Amino acid sequence: MHRASLEPAVLEHVNSFLKALKSPLRGLTSTFTHISGELAILERLYYKGKNQHRSALFWQRVAETRKYGQRLQAMDVLALLENLRASFYGEREFVNAKVFKGAWSHYPDAPYLRNVLKSLKTSTLLLEKVRRVHVEDWSGR
């Protein structure tokens, strides 16, 4: 759907949404870069110690953390949000930053937005579970 076919009230909401999305995307980029490095270290530790520590309780926690990290990477939340933003500019995938210099011209269709929201909800639930299980358990609460 093109921007011209939307009501003026909707235009304001979309403008606010796109403006609000820009800053968290920058933060998520650095966060996911950091997490990726940490998961690479965890993967190496897991590979080196899986036979030696397999039955230890702490090792079961390490294996569980590794599994959650792999799921989080597979979800690729950063690419999902970048592609959502790009969809307002007529692109279905993030190509380059030049696309975002102009005004947005498209409005994604409802099924696409529902799928994005469903994926974001799933990733939020996963992160909440990881926080609840690992942060609280590892800190002894």
Rank of each mutant, 00 (worst) to 15 (best):
H2M: 12
L6P: 04
L6T: 09
L6I: 09
E7Y: 01
P8C: 02
P8A: 06
V10N: 04
V10G: 00
E12R: 12
E12S: 11
H13G: 01
V14K: 07
F17K: 02
L18Y: 12
K19H: 07
K19V: 05
K19W: 05
L21N: 01
S23M: 06
S23E: 09
L25S: 07
L25M: 09
R26E: 10
R26H: 01
L28D: 08
L28F: 13
L28V: 11
L28K: 04
L28S: 06
T31C: 08
F32P: 03
H34K: 04
H34N: 08
I35E: 01
I35P: 02
S36R: 02
S36I: 00
G37F: 06
G37C: 14
G37Q: 11
L42Y: 09
E43F: 00
E43L: 09
E43V: 00
R44S: 08
R44V: 03
R44D: 13
L45A: 06
Y47C: 04
Y47H: 07
N51D: 13
H53V: 11
R54W: 03
A56K: 03
A56Q: 15
A56R: 15
L57G: 08
W59H: 05
Q60D: 11
R61G: 02
V62W: 01
A63N: 04
E64H: 09
E64S: 12
E64T: 10
T65Y: 10
R66V: 00
K67S: 07
K67F: 07
K67G: 00
Y68Q: 07
Y68L: 05
Y68D: 04
G69L: 03
Q70T: 01
Q70W: 00
R71V: 00
R71K: 11
M75F: 00
V77T: 15
L81K: 03
L81C: 14
L81Y: 01
E82G: 01
N83G: 11
A86C: 12
A86H: 05
S87W: 07
F88D: 06
F88C: 02
F88K: 08
F88H: 11
Y89N: 09
Y89I: 14
G90V: 09
G90H: 10
G90T: 08
E91H: 09
E91I: 06
E91C: 13
R92C: 10
E93Q: 08
F94R: 11
N96A: 14
A97W: 10
K101V: 01
G102W: 03
W104Q: 13
W104V: 06
Y107L: 03
D109M: 04
P111R: 03
P111E: 13
P111Q: 07
R114I: 09
R114V: 13
R114Y: 14
N115W: 05
L117A: 14
L117E: 02
S119T: 08
S119M: 15
L120Q: 08
K121F: 14
T122W: 02
T122D: 08
T124P: 01
T124N: 13
T124F: 14
T124Q: 10
L126M: 06
L126C: 12
L126K: 01
L127D: 02
E128Y: 12
K129N: 08
V130T: 15
R131M: 10
H134I: 05
H134F: 15
V135I: 15
E136M: 09
E136Y: 08
W138M: 09
S139E: 12
G140K: 14
R141E: 12
R141K: 15
